Amino acid sequence: MEQFEQIKKLLDNSQFYYIITTAMDGNYSYVNGNYARAFSHIDADMVGKPYYITMHPDDMKVCEQTAAKCFASPDRSFPATIRKHNGKGGYINTQWEYRAMFDEHGAPAGLFCLGYDITKYVAANEQLEVAISQIKHKNDMLEQIGWEQSHIIRKPLANIIGLVGILSKMDLDQNMTNICKMLLQSAAELDDAIYGIVQKTN
């Protein structure tokens, strides 16, 4: 218990970390200043109140499961992500480390929990996932465009080049010969342009 008391003193006025302890009955036995300020809209004095008054009801199961792990492995800390009421009808996301506490006789005394607000991180991560999804979608579109350019558009273009080649070998007047040459040149330029697009999409 002594090490927990030292941490409580050290971080009692932390501007970043939340520290809480709960007794075996599930009620708060201590909250540091940062936690008290952050959730004062719920209760001005949380000591003695049930631990779940600050959290999303669906996350109570997470707390129970994490607490069970702590007492099953008393030398380890276990993480938990918990949503807390923000006082505006919504929630903030918080990340915690839980550790079981024992009294001087080795009997379970409660839980020590160290946490912090990860709302901005979660929002940034969600935005990143959306951006990655959009990039993947655009890459898929580019690959599709490249495939269509290579397999769909170049096929009729190759046919045109072939037909113009046949025409150029026929007995044509000078005017038609010049037109065939221009058609071949334009078709070759278009083929090169399509090839360049395909290479970029790859």
Results as ranks from 00 to 15, higher is better:
Glu104His: 04
Leu128Gly: 02
Leu172Cys: 06
Asn125Cys: 02
Asn32Asp: 12
Thr66Ser: 09
Asp173Gly: 14
Tyr51Val: 13
Ser29Thr: 11
Leu157Pro: 00
Lys84Glu: 11
Thr21Trp: 02
Gly48His: 06
Val130Asn: 04
Gly110Cys: 12
Gly162Met: 08
His151Phe: 09
Cys113Gln: 07
Tyr195Arg: 12
Ser186Phe: 01
Val47Trp: 07
Phe78Val: 00
Glu143Ile: 04
Gln65Phe: 05
Pro156Met: 14
Pro74Ala: 06
Phe78Ala: 01
Trp96Asp: 04
Trp96Lys: 03
Ile197Trp: 03
Met141His: 09
Phe4Leu: 10
Glu64Asp: 09
His41Trp: 11
Val47Met: 13
Gly48Met: 14
Glu129Arg: 07
Glu143Leu: 08
Val130Ile: 13
Tyr121Gln: 08
Phe102Thr: 14
Lys49Phe: 07
Gly48Phe: 14
Phe102Cys: 11
Ile152Arg: 05
Glu5Asn: 15
Gly162His: 09
Gly162Glu: 12
Ile152Gln: 04
Met46Leu: 15
Ile19Glu: 06
Gln95Ala: 14
Ile19Asp: 05
Arg154Glu: 05
Gln144Met: 12
Gln144Thr: 06
Gln199Val: 11
Asp173Asn: 10
Tyr51Ala: 07
Gly165Cys: 13
Ser150Cys: 04
His105Asp: 13
Val62Pro: 06
Asn125Gln: 12
Asn175Lys: 15
Lys8Gln: 12
Tyr18Asn: 02
Ile194Met: 05
Asp43Tyr: 02
Thr119Glu: 02
Leu114Tyr: 05
Glu104Asp: 15
Asp43Ala: 15
Gly165Ser: 13
Met60Phe: 07
Ala158Pro: 01
Thr66His: 04
Ile20Ser: 15
Tyr98Ile: 01
Asp45Asn: 15
Gln3Val: 09
Ile160Ala: 13
Tyr35Asn: 08
Met101Cys: 09
Gly90Cys: 13
Arg37Thr: 07
Leu184Asp: 07
Lys120Arg: 11
Asn13Gln: 06
Gly196Asp: 14
Gln127Pro: 01
Tyr30Phe: 10
Ile92Ala: 03
Ile92Phe: 03
Ile7Lys: 09
Leu157Arg: 04
Gln134Cys: 10
Tyr35Asp: 03
Tyr35Ala: 09
Asn27Arg: 10
Lys9Phe: 13
Leu114Cys: 02
Glu104Arg: 13
Thr54Lys: 07
Gly89Ser: 08
Ala123Gly: 03
Gly110Val: 09
Met182Asp: 08
Cys63Gly: 01
Ala36Ile: 01
Lys181Asp: 02
Gln174Trp: 00
Tyr116Val: 01
Gln185Ser: 05
Thr81Tyr: 07
Thr22Gly: 01
Ala68Ser: 09
Gln174Leu: 11
Tyr116Lys: 11
Phe39Met: 12
Ala107Ile: 08
Thr22Trp: 06
Asp43Glu: 14
Ile161Ala: 05
Met170Ile: 02
Lys155Met: 05
Ala187Cys: 11
Gly106Val: 08
Lys181Ser: 08
Leu10Asp: 10
Leu11Pro: 06
Met176Arg: 12
Gly110Glu: 12
Gly90Gln: 11
Ala188Ser: 12
His137Asp: 14
